[in-house]
């Protein structure tokens, strides 16, 4: 990968980390609220179904994960296992695609 591409990956990881910092905190608050107030699965689905705010929030969360995790994995593979090169870049790209598709599928499942 050319230097410009490496810089863009680094920037993408930094920006996705900023989004994740907000999303993870909001997600944790949501979980704690749901557990403390004893919300049932049915009640939770009642709130998420048809709710565009939750759809946008969790779709953004998934997008940030799908960007952040593969770039981090690329660094870990490079530094820990000395795996580098185009084949690793393609493998982590596929990881990002899989994470995005699985995540968005789950988000859509609680929306529809």
């Amino acid at each position: 990968m050319k230097t410009r591409g490496q810089i863009l990956l680094w920037l993408a990881q930094r920006y996705s980390a900023m989004v994740l910092a907000v999303c993870v905190v909001a997600h944790l608050i949501t979980i704690i609220y749901a557990v403390r107030t004893g919300l049932s699965a049915e009640q939770i689905l009642g709130r998420t179904r048809g709710n565009f705010a939750w759809l946008v929030f969790y779709a953004t969360f998934v997008a940030a994960v799908a960007v952040h995790a593969p770039i981090g994995m690329r660094t870990i593979l490079s530094e820990t296992l000395r795996l580098r090169g185009a084949h690793v870049d393609i493998a982590v790209l596929l990881l990002g695609v899989v994470l995005a598709l699985w995540g968005w599928r789950a988000v859509f499942a609680v929306f529809q």
């Binding site: 230097t3 490496q6 810089i7 580098r84």
Partner: peptide
Amino acid sequence: LKAVAGDAGCH
């Protein structure tokens, strides 16, 4: 800046 950027540089 080109020489110090990227996977083997400051990033």
